[in-house]
Amino acid sequence: MSAVQPSRSLRILTISAFLLVLLSLYMVFVYAPREVVMGAVQRVFYYHVAAGWIGALAFLVTLIVSILYLATNNIILDRIAVSSVEIGVVFTSMNIASGSIWARPIWNTWWTWDPRLTTATVMWLLYIAYLMLRQGLEDPERQRRFAAVYGILAFTSVPLTFLAIRIWRTIHPVVIGSSDPGAEGQFDMTMRMRSAFFFSLFTFTVLYTTLLWHRVRLEGLACRVAIMKARLLHDR
């Protein structure tokens, strides 16, 4: 059962991700200055955007491996796709929930059906449906093919979410580029804020890679156990 134990590279990556999270917390809470207009809640920004970035990255990875799966029928690509969607849903949940908390003191409401919030919620629900619909199909081959096609189609919601604050009138501020004049919560980033922001993005990217590696291994283990069970039943 040596395959069950994580490899040396994965262990190093896991420890690195943990240390990076600690360092990014220092950057967010100590190194970055407090924003004068919004106060302490502005610090949610660093992880809020990083979580949104990971959601988009995870769904992009799913799109790429889904296309490759349809072309090659390699089961490992399907394992990466489902693992990436699961992680993407977790980080998108963080993004939506933290955004709602940030909105309360700044917009004076927990939620509003703004184009960005609406498209992000639709994207989140589409990928939750991906995970649920996978479970609904019995035949593994059909399940994988269906999931690959769904993973490609669902990705249309990702650029739509990204562009929502750039093409429609919105209350949501834009981080890179100019915001809508009606946007609330916009602020000028100092050098230290920028450093904390980009460091958070880097940390979350390493964290995503680590979680994906662990999750793909788990999917492989689940597959091996299923084969062992089938063999045992057949032998008896």
Binding site: G39, A40, V41, V44, H48, W102, P105
Partner: peptide
């Protein structure tokens, strides 16, 4: 403003 509560909640 003191928005520490929302930061901690986030």
């Amino acid at each position: 403003p003191d928005t520490s509560f929302y930061m901690l909640l986030g």
